[in-house]
Amino acid sequence: MSLQLAPDGRLKHLLTIDGLPRKLIEDLLDATDSLRSVALRGNKKLPLLRGRTIINLFFEASTRTRTTFELAAERLSADVVNLDVASSSTSKGESLLDTLATLEAMHCDMFVVRHPDSGAAHFIAEHVAPGVAVLNAGDGRHAHPTQALLDAYTIRRHKQRFEDLTIAVVGDVLHSRVARSELRAFGILGAGELRVIGPRTLLPPSIEELGVRVYTDMDAGVADADVIIMLRLQRERMRGVFLPSESEYFRRYGLTAERLALAKPDCIVMHPGPMNRGIEIASEVADGPQSVILEQVSNGLAVRMAVMSHILGAQVPQMEASA
């Protein structure tokens, strides 16, 4: 029995990409298409979630992700409450379940949760009151499903069939919830070839079993790629046991214009942000013509609107997809 899928096939929660049917993902991407014009217009709200209350429950600091969730809810006319739990009750010793119970007493409809523990979103979904939805905005190293959906959506806008694509994910896959969710999503969407590129210290040992090809050599890994996704390298990984230094990492795995030239000429470059320029990606690539990094951010808004509408049962109207 799936915790996140209702018997009718709709999402009760979105906790992970794992186990989602391809059709459901495609429906969400289609709804994203419809909502994208609204998201980009910015001055017009849709009344889809009027009267609903969404609580952003962030146990881990985040500005960008929380802002896009907040904006997405507001564009759908929901009431939004932001709670940085990292700095409030749990630091006073309150348990996660107590925090949840307190917030449920406010009769909210959805928790958007970010938490440093892998599996935290599952845990919360198991314990919330019936009828309250949980949307995982990143749990530990486990999953970040809306990021994967927005990346899939961004790829779909630029490329046609996933079956024809070679997609390379570069960097700290070991600690990355983004990578885990993306590899799942692209796999379900039928991607032709999935590659992960990085030093062995930053790749989970059994990663090959996920159906990906492993490259420890960046040049070989990006060769003829259609999509290159650079992962953020957390500062604390750069020195010490995972990597010798930032500069060595950039020399071996940084995406430079020379390396990008090894990929297909129309290869797009993505990054979930925030970027470390000069460490995982050269500025000339980040700001170059093949980069779709800023578009990812605006697509993130539309994807989150689509997911929120879907989970809370609002019918997304068919709209003219903007160019």
Binding site: S118, G140, H142, R177, R180, P204, P205, S206
Partner: peptide, 15 residues
């Protein structure tokens, strides 16, 4: 255990 499940679930592994 540092293996397939930990890799999938993003759990810190014990080899």
């Amino acid at each position: 255990h540092e293996g397939r499940v930990a890799a999938l679930q993003g759990l810190a592994g014990i080899p």
